[in-house]
Design a protein around this nucleic acid. Structure first.
Lengths: 243, 243
DNA sequence: GATATAATACTTGTATACAAGTATACTTAA
DNA sequence: TTAAGTATACTTGTATACAAGTATTATATC
């Protein structure tokens, strides 16, 4: 059995987190990265030993990951589902659905504050690129979309986002780490797309929004590929440096 | 302190359920029915005593209810959010969003099996009306929509549904119990609307689907009202007979 | 060797114990 | 009477223990 002592999830993001949260975030990363392969059966007891915690935080983690659809709880053991190409496209379907809905709400309200906030986040993203900080970039990228969604002020849409976010975050983290190594040129396009987003919200232009959402969606194909590359990098033992 | 020994959730639906599940379902019903008022602070220990179980199943329940947005976990105690008019409309927004998405998938596949299944459920609903079985009717109503959603074969849309379903189910249960007592004439309309749903799926007619979704949505106003009536009935001590 | 039965090593769900932290109430000193 | 400090009664998160159930393996029987 190959045991990994490296943690995939940025440890500084877990400074105040409980043991349960740590396990949840780390386990999620290992599943999404493919370090724990799809089909693997996870045992509460084994995980408790691996993470050097009791079964309580492990149980908590498994319940959450099951609700995120990346594992499946059965009578005996938790079966890893993971993220295949299909699931990633499905996640983007949902994001498209949510953000389209949100946009329809945004065209009816004042978005000046939101645009200011988004511009700030975009600046942050640029700085993250400048300093090749993949994790920070991923964080700001996720925050960008969350900020838009929050602006719609719709608690049940936010609920969906909260359910989707952790998986998205993990996926984007892995994707961005890989891109900083192998496809830095991608970031120009990503930044441009986010500028388009802001512009669409500012002008309340449905066509422009549709265009930027669509471009983002097209990017999925690339992102799916990213995950494979990311998994290959991991399996080769090229481990990520986080801080 | 007024303690209720009556259970709101149909006990026969919990035959194989764990203590954690029982608490989750019952607590959800009490919150949505308004028996536990919005703003109330729930204590793990007090709940454990009330339900005569340990803190473990209570913790499990609170985590789930928090992910459903009907309570909010804070550093000290869980604050009840409940379902106000706004939340109910929001839930229907999401249902509309999901079912519209699902319909777009259904027009592209063979739906013969689905229609057969839905027709069967509709028959069941009619029988439930005939025997004034509110709980059975609610069950079949929820199942009707779940069956449609499942047919789309989209795991992340199903994930959203799974997150929304318990709250919907509780709400529909309460609403239908009330209607059987106070507004029996409603059921003719509900059945008709479901027939329209099936017809829309059969003919793959977008306009018809939009019409039936819209009618269902218009029904929300009535349903919100239902909850108030339901809450009044509860506060008057008129308790529901379940089996 | 195949089949039934018993022993075992797991599994989950729940109860309980405890540490660390936080709000509330109660002092005590000014 | 008020302010600061202290005690007390809560809170959460985690560890551990245990009961009941379920696979797996070993053993005995045919």
């Amino acid at each position: 059995m190959t045991e990994s002592r490296e943690f995939l999830y940025p440890s500084k993001w877990l400074s105040k987190a409980s043991a349960g949260d740590r396990v949840t975030y780390e386990l999620r990363m290992r599943i999404i990265s493919g370090q724990i392969e799809s089909g693997t059966i996870l045992s509460e007891n084994k995980l408790a030993i691996d993470f050097a915690v009791s079964r309580s935080p492990i149980r908590e983690a498994l319940k959450i990951l099951a609700s995120e659809n990346i594992i499946r709880l059965e009578r005996m053991g938790a079966v890893v589902i993971g993220l295949s190409e299909i699931e990633i496209e499905e996640i983007y379907d949902v994001r498209l659905l949510i953000e389209s809905f949100v946009f329809e709400r945004l065209v009816r309200i004042d978005t000046n504050e939101l645009i200011k906030e988004l511009s700030k986040i975009l600046e942050m993203m640029k700085v993250a690129i400048k300093y090749s900080d993949a994790d920070e970039f991923a964080y700001q990228d996720v925050l960008f979309h969350e900020t838009i969604i929050r602006a719609a002020n719709h608690s049940y849409i936010l609920m969906i986002w909260n359910n989707l976010k952790p998986v998205m975050e993990s996926f984007i983290l892995l994707s961005m780490r890989m891109r900083f190594k192998e496809k830095v040129e991608d970031f120009t396009r990503i930044i441009k797309n986010h500028e388009l987003y802001i512009e669409a919200i500012r002008t309340k232009d449905r066509d422009l929004m549709s265009k930027s959402l669509h471009e983002n969606f097209d990017d999925v194909q690339g992102k799916v590929e990213d995950l494979w590359i990311s998994q290959q990098i991991l399996s080769k033992g090229v481990v990520q440096q986080n801080d």
